[in-house]
Design a protein around this nucleic acid. Structure first.
Lengths: 338, 338
DNA sequence: TATTGGCACTCGGGAACCGAGAGTGCCAGA
DNA sequence: TCTGGCACTCTCGGTTCCCGAGTGCCAATA
């Protein structure tokens, strides 16, 4: 038995099953793919593949379907790179071009990814910790209330309303503005927080309290881990195309999609800038046993956040990986230049 | 035949059907509700109600289910106000309390609404047109690029990157800042846009071009209708509880939920501050023939945006209406005070 | 006149049944 | 090592059949 033909059979099974969503039999296989051997031979190969746990049959008189392990093998060793068509590239570029806002970029990316892959797309907002502070703006709301706006390099904007223990006047406000900006602007979040913390000690005693409150709020905003949980989900309607059983597949997906923390974990496993794939039960989530995640990090120099798609294990891995990769690159570029 | 008993029967049918999701028969009805009459009598009433088109039977040997018209009647005339429990009120308050951001408020509201009603919740961002400008901030990115940040009273923040036709220096930047703020700050969006438009004519000729570009971008940002389409959806997982047929009910819902424009239309029909209900085919959307929308506007003095829930026609109207109403009030309060 | 018990009738849905067809494993021969 | 042949297995779709819930109608009754 030839080893490479056996692998060709595995590849053919994966491709056919992904395309048709039906168990594929030996006869259909030799007809569709020019394997140059008879169905009986293929059957032998299949038996061997099943022995190795790469494929399985749902019931005795049915064709074979790939197992998680089979998909994994396919992804790691068999899948050929599927370059995007120029039309697709153009679509990506033009789709993301008009974005003038971080929110815009994120929302468009999700949409785009969902459309390209025909699956559920997830995009995480750039993580706070990876940003630098671009500007701190303080706007007086009343004589004792202040709106602090934190503008970050990634385009994120955080705001907080602050109650001030003293009456605001223009001079105090100006002082707050210039000192906070001098400490924070241009710094990475962590450094900015550190620099800000020393501010209250550096000003006149009667202003120390006010500075303390403002600085505390800013620092809190900078280290708010909850806002790192921000993700956007799109293409949920593609769940409908799964054709899969509702109970076993779609319901848990919907539930997981609501749980942003779970999603982040799914994405987060893939925080490098390489495209990573989680297949079926490979993760710790039992309910998602029949779904796979294709994800990657984005960001020009360092990884700012992750994005990816979620779909049934039976999905077009090469296509999804290519799309995820391409979108991540475009997003990285956009964030870098703005 | 007593008219009011007939209506009691209708109410009982609606309540039972909503609770059990199964056609309700005459016998079950007299057992569960103390109607004080025999099943036969109820059957007569049912026949009359069916005659009037308020209920129907899915097939001959089944119980009755309410028609859209029946639900409408129930909502308009029969439903008793269902005040929220104090526990629920407390939950709302504490849930929304910690929000320090418009984004936060919106996201928490969706979640809350979805949780309270066990349905899909939709919250629209406050409309731009209804806001006033709180502050315009301009941050230099490089010597020819500028980040404009528009801070609005509702807490919305819009930003744009602007290419400047001249070199930026601190003095020019200061001039831009003070003039734009003098024109725009405190004004309603429409007025601010108008006031800004005259700016380029008021400055020294060599600055006019720069002012033009900045003003144009600001005005564009203020009148960007696309960003009025912003809505957030939550509780999609509750779709799974419909138990309803997937194809006929859930798929179109998922598709509609992706189409934010459609959602806005659904909400928008209800732009007053009263809770309005759209039942089944009452809207122009054929695919959503078996879903209802309970929505209302929020905002303290005027309506800033809408929020509501979407669910199967067979839903708990009194409960949903109460929840929508309550959440809208809380959101209004929060937006008002911040 | 409104209500009620009785009764025949309808019809959906689940259980049981059955046959066709796809696919397999195995074996003997090339 | 591959292939053709063959007996075997099991799912799936269609059909039939029966049970029971629920109805409509009617005659009797308060």
């Amino acid at each position: 038995m030839q080893e490479d033909r056996k692998l060709a059979v595995l590849r053919a099974i994966v491709e056919d099953y992904v395309a048709t969503q039906e168990p594929v039999g030996s006869k259909a296989l030799v007809e569709r793919h020019r394997l140059g051997v008879s169905p009986a031979t293929v059957r032998n190969d299949m038996a061997a593949l099943e022995e190795e746990g790469l494929i399985a049959q749902p019931h005795t008189s049915a064709g074979r379907i790939p197992t998680d392990k089979g998909y994994r093998f396919f992804v790691d060793r068999l899948s050929r790179l599927k370059p995007l068509s120029t039309a697709e590239r153009r679509a990506i570029a033009s789709f993301l071009e008009g974005a003038h806002d971080l929110d815009d970029v994120v929302r468009r990316s999700v949409r785009l990814l969902a459309q390209l892959t025909q699956q559920v797309a997830i995009v995480q907002y750039p993580q706070l910790a990876k940003s630098t502070v671009r500007h701190v703006e303080l706007v007086a709301l009343s004589s004792t209330r202040l709106l602090a706006v934190l503008i970050l390099s990634t385009g994120r904007v955080e705001q907080r309303v602050i109650e001030i223990p003293a009456d605001l006047d223009d001079e105090l406000l100006g002082d707050l503005r210039s000192r906070t900006n001098r400490s924070a602007a241009g710094q990475r979040i962590a450094d900015a927080a550190a620099a800000l913390s020393t501010l209250p000690d550096e000003v006149a005693p009667e202003r120390s309290a006010t500075f303390s409150v403002v600085v505390a709020t800013l620092v809190e905003a900078m280290s708010d881990h909850r806002s790192d949980e921000r993700v956007v989900v799109g293409g949920t309607a593609n769940l409908a195309r799964f054709g899969d059983s509702f109970e076993s597949s779609i319901r848990p997906m919907l539930e997981a999609l609501e749980e942003h923390v779970v999603l982040l974990k799914l994405l987060g496993e893939a925080s490098s800038s390489q495209v990573t794939v989680r297949i079926g039960r490979e993760g710790p989530y039992d309910q998602l046993s029949s779904t796979s995640v294709v994800a990657t990090g984005y960001g020009a120099d360092e990884v700012l956040g992750s994005l990816g798609v979620v779909g049934p294990t039976r999905m077009d891995y090469p296509g999804s990986m290519a799309a995820v990769h391409a979108v991540a690159r475009y997003v990285s570029d956009i964030l870098d230049e703005s």
